[in-house]
Simulated scan of single mutants.
Amino acid sequence: VVMGQSALLNLAGWQVAALTHDRSTRFLHYAPLSFDVSYQEIFPTLASGGTVVAREPADRRDFPALVRRVAEAGVTHLFLPAAALRPFARTAADLDVRLPALRHLCVSGEQLVVDDDVRGLFSRLDGCELVNLYGPTETNAATAHVLAGEPETWPAHVPIGRPLPGVAAYVLDRNGRLAPPGVPGELYLGGACLADGYLNDPVRTAAGFVPDRFGPDPDARVYRTGDYVIRDEQGVLVYLGRVDT
């Protein structure tokens, strides 16, 4: 996937503002450099004058070491795969480790489920927000939903949220028409988040990136995510599954 500079700058601009990046930011570099999330860990942090904290040890599945690293390094921002959130929360509880500096814990990669372990972790964190980010590789992060306040009130299955600034999100029914709120359909993404396409593969690019029939720009494209979603009355997107399953 070829991701242009403008899409990455749009994402970085949103992140610096929404996740309150500044010179006090200490973002743990957890993701491999080959994974697109590493961009979100490194560049917005450096652009705002913050510090990228190296991960130790090399094994990303060593949760006791990871929890201690976050605590001892004063990490303020952490990005985890959704599947790693529960083991991280359980390990922090088992070790009775406090994470007083942590302000934003972001997750992505699959459906975010909030259980008692996750609620327990955030009940011990003072003012830390849980940020659920959604987006395929072809768009990077395109929507976000923030959970704050009392963890006991958080839903078990977390929505994928609203589009980031500059991002267009359409829910289309099986006839290719815009689905009204409450009616499920396939999610199409466009606007500032969109990749240029697949490297040296114009056929696949044309199949995945199709004309935007609903926006003002006749040359604009949208990406067919293949994800089945519903938009509620407040405009929040809820992930339901894959269209082909």
Results as ranks from 00 to 15, higher is better:
Thr137Ala: 09
Val67Gly: 05
Gly215Lys: 12
Phe214Gly: 05
Phe27Arg: 04
Leu187Trp: 04
Asp244Leu: 09
Gly190Phe: 08
Asp94Gln: 15
Pro57Ala: 11
Pro165Ala: 08
Ala141Val: 13
Ala18Met: 08
Arg55Leu: 15
Val114Arg: 01
Gly191Pro: 02
Ala71His: 14
Tyr239Met: 10
Gly241Pro: 00
Asp201Phe: 02
Pro211Leu: 01
Glu56Asp: 12
Arg69Val: 10
Val229Ser: 00
Asp227Lys: 02
Val37His: 08
Leu19Ala: 09
Leu95Val: 02
Leu172Asp: 11
Asn200Ile: 02
Leu130Val: 09
Gly190Asp: 00
Leu178Pro: 10
Asn175Thr: 10
Gly208Ser: 05
Asp116Tyr: 06
Phe209Ala: 05
Ala144Glu: 12
Val52Thr: 10
Cys128Lys: 00
Arg68Asp: 12
Tyr170Asn: 02
Val210Glu: 04
Pro64Gln: 07
Ala18Gly: 06
Leu9Ala: 15
Ala101Trp: 03
Arg124Lys: 14
Gln15Pro: 07
Asn175Val: 00
Gly4Tyr: 07
Val222Asn: 00
Pro180Phe: 07
Val16His: 07
Ala54Pro: 10
Asn140His: 15
Pro64Cys: 04
Ile160Ser: 03
Thr153Trp: 08
Glu110His: 10
Ser123Arg: 15
Ala168Lys: 12
Leu66Met: 15
Ala65Thr: 09
Leu189Pro: 02
Leu112Lys: 04
Gly182Val: 13
Val114Ile: 11
Ala58Asn: 11
Pro211Trp: 08
Val53Gln: 07
Val75Met: 09
Asn132Arg: 13
Ile230Trp: 03
Ala195Glu: 04
Tyr239Val: 00
His157Cys: 05
Pro136Cys: 07
Leu189Phe: 08
Ala220Asp: 02
Phe79Arg: 04
Val146Ile: 14
Phe209Gln: 00
Asp201Thr: 04
Ala47Met: 13
Val37Pro: 06
Thr225Glu: 07
Leu172Asn: 11
Leu95Met: 15
Ser24Cys: 09
Ala192Lys: 03
Leu105Arg: 07
Val203Ala: 14
Met3Lys: 09
Cys128Asp: 08
Asn132Asp: 03
Gly185Ile: 01
Glu129Lys: 15
Leu237Lys: 03
Arg174Ser: 14
Tyr228Val: 05
Arg69Pro: 01
Glu186Thr: 12
Arg61Asn: 13
Arg174Pro: 00
Val2Tyr: 13
His77Met: 07
Glu72Ala: 14
Cys128Glu: 06
Glu138Trp: 03
Gly182Thr: 10
His77Ile: 07
Ala101Leu: 07
Ala92Ile: 01
Pro165Ile: 07
Val114Leu: 12
Gly120Ile: 04
Asp201Cys: 09
Leu102His: 05
Gln111Ile: 01
Gly208Ile: 03
Trp154His: 11
His145Met: 03
Gly235Ser: 12
Glu129Val: 14
Leu187Val: 09
Arg242Thr: 04
